[in-house]
């Protein structure tokens, strides 16, 4: 069963029929840049599209390998998770942990207004 990993209301990009080496479009670059919250100028879009197309060309070579019936490998040792006892080990260290904050007040990190 295919799992919807985008979990989106409407996918931003239409799912591909099949993966070919057509490369990546400028529109896709802009859309991914937005997902990754990277501002990108028109000039950069052009250059980036070119580079990403080349990179995706290299990556798409793997489509030639038949991987049917192979389990994905996430950890090279196939190791399993160790569990931690439910004991409080951390004490209040707010002053130190917030020293790098670009803006803070009353023990809070400040960011431009959050609109729900």
């Amino acid at each position: 069963m295919a799992i919807d990993r985008s979990n989106s209301l409407e996918p931003e990009m239409p799912a591909p029929e099949k993966i070919d080496s057509q490369g990546i479009s400028a529109k896709q670059v802009q859309s991914v840049a937005h997902l990754a919250r990277l501002s990108i100028s028109e000039d950069e879009v052009r250059q980036t599209t070119e580079k990403l197309t080349a990179i995706m060309g290299l990556i798409d070579e793997m489509q030639a390998v038949n991987t049917d019936g192979i389990e994905p490998l996430a950890n090279p040792l196939d190791a399993v998770q160790r569990l931690r006892a439910d004991e409080v080990t951390e004490t209040n260290n707010r002053e130190q942990l917030m020293t790098n904050a670009p803006a803070k007040e009353d023990g809070l990190f400040l960011v431009p207004k959050v609109i729900d």
Binding site: V29, V32, L35
Partner: peptide, 11 residues
């Protein structure tokens, strides 16, 4: 960008 693209909807 490559990483976000490879993980994005449908890919």
């Amino acid at each position: 960008l490559v990483g976000a693209y490879a993980l994005s909807a449908g890919y």
